[in-house]
Design a protein around this nucleic acid. Structure first.
Lengths: 160, 160
DNA sequence: ACTGGAAATGTTATGCTATAACAATACAGC
DNA sequence: GCTGTATTGTTATAGCATAACATTTCCAGT
């Protein structure tokens, strides 16, 4: 069975924040206003954002944030699995289902509209690990390979 | 069966260049001295290089190359499948088996020593494509997902 | 409450990665 | 040789990320 994540992990735009609060509290990690704000911006964003896009949106709140502000928030959020970095596009995206680590998934990144879908699939993880082992290679814990392609909406449009 | 590539594609350090020459000639593409030099540098390199590392090595040949010089050469080489970009590390690496496109493989990137192994595996390609399709996603032609982990040598050392 | 230390944030500066824009040159086909 | 296209040279700039150090905030222990 293939699925983005189990039903119990899903949450609306608000639920995600509450869940992040809980997760951080449980770990004794401090989800400060800055970090929370960056997380909110990513949750509310229409697709992955660059660090500097986040910076501009933070600046919109008032204040005079500098790059380290946003990078530090991202570092924290990534460390707690709340955010992933899309290395192929220098962008950051809120995680669908924090608390899991990133076991057994891929990022499906649309090369047309830029949207990214985090897709969990045990089969992918198993085959990837197995294949790598044949090369003597030990796959890391939280790998989330990025796969370029066309999302459902863009497949349609491209077909017209 | 899993393998880095078929025996017939393999080539020594020199063979790779000759093969590139043939490939370009067959396509009517011009493997100019600049492009050839960048390709040589990548073939001879001990692991993936950044564009600016290449630039410094070009400068060592004399002349006064600027960034566009190396980026243009890389663009050409990538277009012909002679070089891949390792997006996760902003690095470039010569391709093991040009002429194929990149069908059905992954990049195994060592998080310790930085080396990258291009690993062909039909199973990986099949499962990835199948899994993505379940999300309504159409995987692109030449995707080569990057997987972080430990290479054989570094697994050993880490075990000590 | 007070305080000492650690964590978080502010601030300035800088390095690395990549491309835009336009000029000059080299090359292939005629 | 001429002409148009591809390639390379050159200058400038945009975009991504972190180093280093100052300041503030927060919490624990008293």
């Amino acid at each position: 069975m293939t699925s983005p994540h189990s039903e119990s992990d899903r949450a609306g735009p608000d639920g995600a924040l509450e869940r992040a609060e809980r997760l951080c509290r449980a770990r004794g990690a401090r989800l400060t206003p800055q970090r929370r704000r960056v997380y909110e911006l990513l949750i509310g964003a229409d697709g992955p954002l660059t660090a500097y896009e986040l910076l501009r949106r933070l600046a919109g709140d008032g204040g005079n944030p500098a790059p380290p502000t946003v990078y530090r928030a991202l570092e924290f959020l990534q460390a707690h699995g709340l955010v992933h970095r899309l290395a192929s596009h220098n962008r950051y995206v809120a995680c669908d289902h924090p608390g899991h680590g990133a076991h057994g998934g891929v990022f499906l990144v649309c090369e047309r509209c830029g949207h990214a879908l985090e897709w969990s699939d045990e089969d992918v993880a198993r085959v990837l690990t197995h294949s790598a082992r044949a090369a003597g290679f030990q796959v890391g814990e939280d790998v989330l390979p990025e796969v370029e392609g066309l999302c459902p909406g863009c497949v349609e449009e491209a077909g017209e």
